[in-house]
Measured scan of single mutants.
Amino acid sequence: MGSVRTNRYSIVSSEEDGMKLATMAVANGFGNGKSKVHTRQQCRSRFVKKDGHCNVQFINVGEKGQRYLADIFTTCVDIRWRWMLVIFCLAFVLSWLFFGCVFWLIALLHGDLDTDYKDDDDKSKVSKACVSEVNSFTAAFLFSIETQTTIGYGFRCVTDECPIAVFMVVFQSIVGCIIDAFIIGAVMAKMAKPKKRNETLVFSHNAVIAMRDGKLCLMWRVGNLRKSHLVEAHVRAQLLKSRITSEGEYIPLDQIDINVGFDSGIDRIFLVSPITIVHEIDEDSPLYDLSKQDIDNADFEIVVILEGMVEATAMTTQCRSSYLANEILWGHRYEPVLFEEKHYYKVDYSRFHKTYEVPNTPLCSARDLAEKKYILSNANSFCYENEVALTSKEEEEDSENGVPESTSTDSPPGIDLHNQASVPLEPRPLRRESEIGSRR
């Protein structure tokens, strides 16, 4: 089982795998120059863009038009607004034209077009017409509009002379109601789609790998820009990579689940303020055997998904993003964004995407760390350097704002901070800030 798991979770494809794949392509008759073999020097295209759209195009789909027309309502909801407006206008105009032609044909076959009612006051002739005051196609078209929109100006009306005319008036009224219901329903469904809710759900630009509770963890940050909550919010993550099976089958995008606390339930989050999602790199993680150097040379993509129900409509929305291997910062942490004021908490989104480097973060893999092949620094050293990194950030910001350097908390000259780390230190809580992250 261990060997199978290692093969499945191998992220960085070796040169031997690339040569094996190329040999397979030639042997199977696919070596026509169009096949692409992804190596370390040639990274694959992003499968999920940063804005959440999937970078996929469908080609050679059989009976595409028929399949889309069979699900016309979903098609109308998914198309762009400009095409929705075109369909909206065409549906009414074509129905008016169709029934206008029908009423014109009825008048033509009944002989109503030969009668001039402007110079004739004989009401008996008017009563013999199928539709009064309809003696041309324009008049028939206007009567069709008046019937379907129930305008009723009063000059044109159907008589009991022709039952077919009466039937067409009733039929057009029913068709008009159906068109109204369909168009209004599609427009309302399109307006109520929770897709735009994703514009106020954000992911951090970069993911980070750092120590948390004595273990290497992959972390990324999510935030909600609205005050309205995302009900039943939960997160998922998958690692996408290519691999070759033991039988020699090439899988271009193998999807591997990344555990973010599904078993323990901590994948469900209360997204009021930005939260750091934590994936513990343990023996079940696809990143277990990867060191910093392996991450730098790897070719994979981590897709992160945030799902929840919109509070206003109770409709489920899904926000997506992805991180390539070069977008994962090893040995970094996110800057705090949640600050405790006197009577409330304040979230500073200008710090949302910012990170700071944490010294002495192990550069080895989580496996080597678990097997004690890498000796961690003293816990006080880690905490102290973590505090120094934050303090230096604040000093830089104070210097930019014009604060005198004498007010900063610099260490005395001639003292090495790293050498001082081995000395037991008193706890130094942050002056006014605390970061709330997901705790395992």
Rank of each mutant, 00 (worst) to 15 (best):
D78W: 09
G52I: 01
L253R: 09
W83T: 09
R431D: 14
A237W: 01
E385K: 04
Q255H: 04
M188H: 12
E161K: 03
I174R: 07
I145C: 08
S399C: 11
H353I: 00
S392G: 13
E426A: 05
D51P: 04
D299Q: 07
D122T: 01
S228Y: 14
T313I: 04
E280M: 13
T391F: 11
Q172E: 04
D267Q: 12
D282N: 14
A421S: 06
Y384F: 12
T200D: 06
V231G: 04
G402I: 12
A181P: 03
R236S: 13
H279M: 01
L430M: 10
G265P: 12
F99P: 00
D263A: 06
H205D: 15
S13D: 10
S95D: 02
S422C: 09
C319R: 04
V170T: 07
R333F: 15
C76W: 10
H38P: 08
K125Q: 12
K372E: 14
E16C: 08
E161M: 03
A298G: 08
R268N: 08
D289W: 03
L90Y: 03
D296N: 08
E133H: 08
P404G: 07
F352V: 00
F270A: 10
P252M: 15
S377E: 14
A366K: 01
V187I: 07
D112V: 00
S144C: 01
V222S: 01
N360K: 03
W104A: 06
T138H: 03
Q66L: 14
D263G: 08
Q172F: 01
N32W: 05
E433D: 09
K36R: 12
S408I: 10
L329Q: 05
D78M: 13
E327V: 01
W81R: 05
R236G: 05
T391D: 15
K64P: 05
F47T: 09
M315I: 07
Q255K: 04
K196E: 08
S124D: 12
H343F: 04
P252D: 15
L90M: 10
W330I: 01
V304L: 12
E341G: 04
Y345Q: 13
L430D: 13
L113Y: 03
Y117A: 00
A186T: 15
S377Y: 04
S173L: 15
V166P: 02
L105M: 09
W330L: 00
I275Y: 13
N60F: 05
N198H: 07
L109W: 15
V304K: 00
M19S: 09
G402E: 06
G52R: 00
H332S: 04
Y384T: 14
R243M: 08
S228E: 06
V208I: 07
P286E: 01
V403Y: 08
H234S: 12
R212D: 06
G223Q: 09
G223I: 08
K393T: 14
C43A: 13
I11A: 12
T409Q: 08
I174D: 00
Y345D: 01
L21T: 09
R367Y: 01
S411V: 12
S285L: 00
A70T: 04
K118W: 02
H110A: 03
C130P: 01
K34D: 15
L105Q: 02
N259R: 11
R40D: 13
Y323I: 08
L369Y: 07
C162R: 00
T159S: 12
R80L: 05
I375V: 13
G185F: 05
V358P: 01
K196R: 08
R5H: 10
S377K: 05
S3A: 09
P163G: 13
H418T: 13
P286S: 00
L21S: 13
M191F: 05
F352S: 01
H279G: 00
C54Y: 04
I256M: 10
R44T: 13
S381I: 05
M24Q: 14
G185S: 13
Q420N: 09
A91N: 14
Q293C: 07
N259G: 09
L425M: 07
S242N: 13
T23C: 06
G223C: 10
S408C: 12
L108R: 13
H343P: 07
D17I: 05
E63H: 14
T23D: 15
D119E: 01
E385W: 02
E283R: 14
L430H: 13
V166L: 04
T391N: 05
E301A: 01
P424E: 14
K125M: 14
P274E: 09
Q318E: 07
Y344D: 14
Q41N: 11
M315Y: 08
I79W: 05
F141I: 04
Q57I: 04
E341P: 02
V126E: 04
R46V: 01
E161T: 08
D257Y: 07
I209E: 02
I72K: 15
T149F: 02
M309F: 14
L108G: 11
S350G: 11
V26A: 15
R5V: 07
R432Q: 15
L271W: 12
E396R: 08
K346T: 04
D71A: 12
S10K: 05
A107G: 07
K195Q: 04
G62C: 10
L21A: 09
S127W: 14
G154H: 07
R221N: 00
T6M: 06
E340V: 07
T355F: 01
R80M: 07
N224K: 08
R333P: 00
F47G: 02
S132Q: 09
A22L: 02
L218H: 01
R80E: 05
S132D: 09
G154M: 02
F92G: 05
E426Y: 05
I302H: 00
F300L: 03
E357W: 05
M19Q: 12
G2D: 07
N401R: 12
L201K: 01
K34Y: 05
C319Q: 05
I11M: 13
